[in-house]
Amino acid sequence: MHRIGTRSGTRPPFRPGTRLRALCHARHARLSPCVAAGLLVLILGASCVLVAGCSGDKRHVDSITVSGSTTILPIAEQAAEDFQKQHADTSILVSGMGSSAGIEAVGVTHTADIGTTSRELKDDETQLDLDMIPIANDGIAVIVHPDNPINGLSTNEIRQIFAGRITNWSQVGGADIPITLINRDEASGTRDAFATTIMQNAPFEIDAVVLPGTGQVREVVTRTPGAIGYISVGFVAPRFVDTPVKALIVDGIEPTEENIATGRYPLSRKLYFLMPKHPSILAEQYLQYVLSSEVQEGAVRDAGFLPVISGNLNLPTGSTSQSSGDK
């Protein structure tokens, strides 16, 4: 106390503040060397721990990052989880940011070891020198409210609807309800596939609600009587959701597994892993695991997709053998 007393004599008098403030000040004056030293130690210590931690991690735990399509997320996540259980000291980080972001992450910024995409590469993306390995088959289902009497549409009708030229369900033989369009955002691989197969690159009606996720499209269609949207068949009837939507028959062909695998269903596509030409060992192991029958018949089917290979281990499909031939 004595010290504070003498000091306050030399210091400018404080403005009449609260007692608390004066108290803080007094304590601060006494502790200031400790505070300064403490701060310094804290900062230095923190940075040391960080640096040590990072370098330590690399030595002990193998880690890869998988990012890209939200469609592929459930497969990649489930496979990563099981893979890490079987291989201790490995870490596989999976994230879904959209196909375009995944392609950029593995091909341009190199922030991911594996990119995932649910669409084909565009011209400038094919120059990125990436291996494109199909890991699952998928179909896009055009979904409507379960109470909608419409059961099927032609690709042309769907195109007209999404281009905004057909605006009422009565125009395609349904009830007199205005059509509420639900679209995906432009980063979506599903939208891209839909645009190329159905729209044939005719512009979408801009009046459509744009939602940034498959789940949200499904949710909104579930509760909106006049709505129409499109999602991966894998999400039409997922295990943990009990709200129904109706998937339409397109051009007279049902979106069944068989029709999608054979490509008869007009909205079929493949899901890909994108790998750099010289992937890390762990990335290669993870890919092989995803292509194994365990994942193909497990996680892939669980997520509602179709296996690219049935029960045949390590048998790459057409484009893999091509790209490995390039090596």
């Binding site: 955002d185 432009e186 980063a187 801009i206 009046d207 459509a208 609600v209 744009v210 939602l211 940034p212």
Partner: peptide
């Protein structure tokens, strides 16, 4: 609703500067 259209009613989707930046 993020539709890049001009105001078309209080119940019709529109988009804003911020949401468009995030989406894009």
């Amino acid at each position: 609703g993020n539709a890049p259209q001009l105001f078309a009613g209080i119940n019709a989707p529109i988009s804003t500067l911020t949401s468009q930046i995030v989406l894009g």
